[in-house]
């Protein structure tokens, strides 16, 4: 096994709008890079096997399981983590939905769930219940039974399409 300089990499990302560059081992997974190097612990680290989806972050606009991507692979990418959902106008409609509809209990799955839900609504602003369940099928929640998560996403969808109409009116 070689331990030359190729085992270390420099990774530059834009995370939630901020440019960051950090050195790390080539084998460092993106989830640990985000938590340990960028100090953003809102992204959770769960099953380690790309099953549970708590580590989902947005990479160049697409949700990705960050336990199954090397930090090195994200060099040059634009990342959005749960910390990046809130804007100057306040909580993102998805965050409001999870709050209003009681879309979380322990909260462990919530960051990944919200990032995946945001992407779902960007692709499909008015999803059916089935489409929401299918779209979030890579995210596990052991508390809610999913019912209130579905309601939270529906709340966000309505809120976002209402503000869209308001904006175009």
């Amino acid at each position: 096994m070689s331990h030359d300089h190729h085992n270390m990499v420099s990774v530059s990302v834009t995370v939630n709008g901020e440019s960051r560059t950090e050195e790390c081992e080539a084998r460092m997974l993106l989830v640990h890079f985000i938590r340990e190097k960028l100090g953003l612990t809102g992204t959770h680290w769960g099953c380690d096997t790309s099953n549970c989806g708590v580590c989902v972050v947005s990479v160049d606009g697409q949700p990705v399981k960050s336990c199954t991507m090397l930090a090195a692979m994200a060099d040059g990418a634009e990342l959005t983590t749960v910390e990046g959902l809130e804007t100057a106008d306040g909580l993102h409609p998805i965050q409001q939905g999870f709050m209003e509809c009681h879309g979380l209990q322990c909260g462990f799955c919530t960051p990944g769930m919200m990032i995946a839900a945001k992407s779902l609504l960007e692709q499909n602003p008015n999803p059916t219940e089935h489409e929401i369940r299918d779209g979030l099928s890579g995210q596990l929640c052991r508390c809610t039974g999913y019912h209130n998560i579905i309601k939270a996403v529906q709340f966000a969808a309505e809120k976002m399409s209402a503000s869209e109409e308001g904006a175009s009116a």
């Binding site: 331990h3 190729h6 085992n7 081992e25 997974l29 640990h32 380690d48 090195a72």
Partner: peptide
């Protein structure tokens, strides 16, 4: 924590 063994990383 599950982490791969060290490796050299190259980008094609």
């Amino acid at each position: 924590m599950q982490t791969p063994a060290p490796f050299g990383y190259e980008r094609a």
